[in-house]
Simulated assay, not measured.
Amino acid sequence: MSKHTPGPWTARQQFANRWLIEKDQGTNDAGEKLIPLCLAAVHITILEVGCGERDTEANARLISAAPDLLEALRGFLSAFPLPLRKDEKEAIEAAKTAIAKAEGRS
């Protein structure tokens, strides 16, 4: 399994076309809020790839949901009863492929 910063992550708009993906670091012993850990900056220039502000925001929110999506997918796989129908087997294979990609195994 790949190592990653555990969730939850949040997406916060910094500028019109720049979003930060951050991990809340909580508070120190004195109760002071610690500076969030910046995991990524999503910055898309309209001229570069044809994306607008809404696309940048959607991409940032999708990235920030990644740890939650991965855990939900793992839970989905463990909850399937047996025997499986063909469409259920296909859904499980798609889920396994997505998990492998997230874990760096594909």
Rank of each mutant, 00 (worst) to 15 (best):
C38G: 07
P67A: 08
W19H: 07
S106D: 14
E90Y: 06
F76N: 01
I99A: 08
A95E: 04
I92V: 12
A65D: 09
T27C: 15
K3I: 06
T10W: 00
A102I: 01
A66M: 11
A40N: 11
A40R: 11
H4D: 09
R12L: 03
S64K: 04
R54L: 08
I46M: 09
P67K: 00
K89G: 04
G31M: 04
N59R: 15
R61E: 06
D68W: 02
C51A: 08
E103R: 13
L47T: 03
N17D: 12
T45S: 10
A72P: 00
L84G: 03
P6T: 12
F76D: 03
Q14P: 01
G104L: 09
L84Y: 04
Q13M: 09
E53W: 01
W19V: 07
P67F: 03
I46S: 12
A11V: 02
D24N: 11
A30V: 06
L82G: 05
L47R: 14
S64Q: 05
D68I: 00
L73P: 01
S64V: 02
S106A: 14
L39E: 04
E88Q: 15
L62P: 00
E88G: 10
W9H: 09
A79N: 07
K86Q: 12
E22P: 00
C38M: 08
A58S: 13
P67Y: 02
A79H: 07
Q13S: 04
M1W: 11
E88K: 03
P81M: 05
R85V: 01
I92C: 14
S78N: 06
N17S: 11
L69T: 13
S2V: 07
T5Y: 10
I63W: 01
E48P: 07
W19R: 03
E93N: 11
A41L: 09
A98C: 07
G75P: 00
P83G: 06
P36H: 05
D29E: 13
I44T: 13
Q13Y: 00
E57T: 02
V49I: 10
S2G: 07
A79I: 00
E22K: 00
A40S: 12
A98S: 10
R85D: 10
I92S: 09
G52Y: 04
A91P: 08
C38D: 09
N59S: 09
A72G: 05
E71P: 01
T56Q: 05
A79K: 08
A11T: 04
A30M: 13
I35N: 09
P36T: 03
D68Q: 03
G26D: 15
F15L: 15
C51L: 12
L20N: 05
V42F: 00
P81I: 00
E90K: 15
L73R: 06
A72R: 04
K89R: 14
I63S: 06
E22M: 01
L34Q: 14
D68S: 08
P8I: 01
S64C: 05
R85C: 03
S106G: 14
L70P: 05
L47M: 02
P36R: 03
K101F: 11
L37F: 02
A95R: 00
A41H: 04
T45M: 07
E32Y: 05
I46L: 08
Q25I: 02
A60G: 10
E90L: 15
E32T: 10
T10I: 12
F76G: 01
L77Q: 05
I44E: 13
I63R: 10
K23M: 08
I92G: 06
A94M: 10
P83T: 02
G75L: 03
N17I: 08
V42D: 04
P8W: 03
T10K: 12
G52L: 02
T45H: 12
